[in-house]
Simulated assay, not measured.
Amino acid sequence: MCKHTPPCPSADAADCQAARVSDAHPEQGWDLLCNGVVLFEDTGHLLPDGKVVAPRRPAVAGRAA
């Protein structure tokens, strides 16, 4: 699917979110990557085979009382 040089990571690679955006929809909160992954603004993504990957949110530091 990817025609970039060097090629973008495949949809099943650990770094699949590093692929280039092929179709941007920031007004809807998602982008289609050239490897077929749909990347959501909350960092969750949908793989081409329909598998959902939950968002990766940073740990929240403890709050002062």
Rank of each mutant, 00 (worst) to 15 (best):
M1R: 13
M1E: 15
H4D: 08
T5G: 04
T5S: 10
T5M: 04
P6G: 09
P6R: 11
P7Q: 14
P7C: 07
C8R: 03
P9F: 01
S10C: 08
S10V: 06
S10N: 14
A11G: 05
D12Q: 15
A14I: 07
A14F: 04
C16K: 06
Q17K: 14
Q17N: 11
Q17R: 15
Q17L: 15
A18L: 13
A19I: 02
R20W: 11
R20C: 08
V21C: 11
V21M: 09
D23C: 06
D23G: 01
D23H: 11
H25W: 06
H25T: 04
E27R: 14
E27G: 15
Q28D: 13
Q28N: 13
G29R: 03
G29K: 03
D31T: 03
L33I: 01
C34K: 01
N35W: 01
N35E: 03
G36D: 09
G36M: 02
V37I: 12
V37F: 02
V37Q: 05
V38D: 00
V38S: 04
V38M: 08
V38F: 03
L39V: 02
L39Q: 10
F40T: 02
E41T: 07
T43D: 05
T43I: 01
T43M: 06
G44R: 09
H45K: 07
L46M: 06
L46S: 00
L46N: 00
L46W: 00
L46F: 05
L46G: 00
L47S: 09
L47T: 09
L47W: 09
P48E: 04
G50F: 00
K51A: 15
K51S: 10
V52N: 10
V52L: 15
V52M: 14
V53H: 00
V53R: 00
P55T: 02
R57E: 10
R57W: 05
R57Y: 06
P58D: 06
P58H: 08
V60H: 12
A61D: 13
A61I: 10
G62Q: 10
R63N: 09
A64I: 12
A64S: 15
A64W: 12
A65R: 13
A65D: 12
A65G: 14
